[in-house]
């Protein structure tokens, strides 16, 4: 049993529950519920920051191009971007497929949820600043060039399912050897581990908080593994991270998504 925080649909505050992975259940307020019976609101409250090229394989895939125009040299500092509030959604919410594109790239990743103001943190003390972990699907419109910020690719409505809950940090031995897997329509399409991060969770927190403060409730996504698959309308995407949980969403044509689904703030 793991302690988690989640927000049942309609509740104003997050509530504490026990997550039983083997039984696929959440126990709260004395009741055991199957995790698929529940409806979840977005659990994160602060700013969600994504990290580009933080899997060794993702950087390796760029090959020699990092030495060529327009990049000229490999990245030195963490490359970050923001997943703004219009992108945030939760378990089982549709991911809208915009009318101007026919494929999306999914982005299975671990979210590190900050528990207190983190500025100039050292990697060996990083865990003091973390509340827990969650799962995110950092969806993007596929783009090859990473020269300019990709707001139009990454910041579409509903492009960051996250949750369904935050699992407390104490329930994981370490965030640095978690297996991440993703299935599309039941077929395993991605398998990787946070062992392959270029900057481990602690190193990433150190290098990010060197230049910007993270606040309680902010979430830092550690990066998307290489070969993240492309998906199309009606595909069901399921992401699993060991010890953290699972996150499932379906790609739905934008025009089929109700106003409620696309206009969350």
């Amino acid at each position: 049993m793991k302690k988690v925080w989640f927000k049942p649909s309609g509740h104003r505050e997050a509530i504490v529950a026990s997550f039983d992975q083997a039984a696929s259940s959440l126990m709260y307020e004395g009741i055991r519920r199957n995790i698929e019976e529940l409806q979840y609101d977005t659990i994160v409250s602060g700013t969600v920051y994504g990290t580009l090229l933080n899997f060794k394989g993702a950087l390796a895939k760029m090959g020699e191009s990092t030495y060529q125009e327009p990049y000229n040299k490999p990245p030195q500092a963490p490359i970050l971007y923001i997943k703004p509030r219009n992108t945030l959604t939760s378990h089982h919410q549709p991911i809208p497929l915009p009318k101007d594109v026919d494929q999306l790239q999914i982005g299975p990743t671990l979210g590190v949820v900050i528990g207190r103001t983190a500025s100039r943190v050292k990697k060996h003390e990083a865990h003091h600043y973390i509340t827990g972990y969650t799962i995110a699907n950092d969806v993007t419109v596929p783009h090859d060039s990473v020269f300019r910020p990709a707001v139009k690719h990454r910041a579409r409505d509903g492009f960051c399912p996250i949750g369904p809950w935050i699992v407390e940090k104490e329930s994981l031995d370490s965030p640095d050897h978690l297996s991440i897997r993703a299935w599309v329509n039941g077929k395993l399409v991605l398998e990787n581990t946070t062992k392959n991060l270029l900057r481990s969770v602690g190193e990433l927190l150190e290098d990010v908080t060197e230049f910007m403060t993270l606040r309680k409730g902010d979430t830092l996504l550690v990066g998307v593994p290489e070969e993240a698959p492309l998906v199309k309308a009606n595909d069901v995407v399921r992401i699993h991270i060991d010890g953290v949980g699972l996150l499932e969403n379906t790609i739905i044509h934008e025009f089929e998504v109700s106003q409620k689904g696309s206009d969350r703030s």
Binding site: Y49, L52, L53, P70, Y71, N72, K73, P75, Q76, A77, P78, I79, L80, Y81, I82, S119, V146, F147, R148, P149, A150, F211, M212, T213
Partner: peptide, 17 residues
Amino acid sequence: DYLENYYRPNLRVKNRD
């Protein structure tokens, strides 16, 4: 000084405290 050519300009250049 902190400009790099990835998602340029990046947060180290533009999102300091």
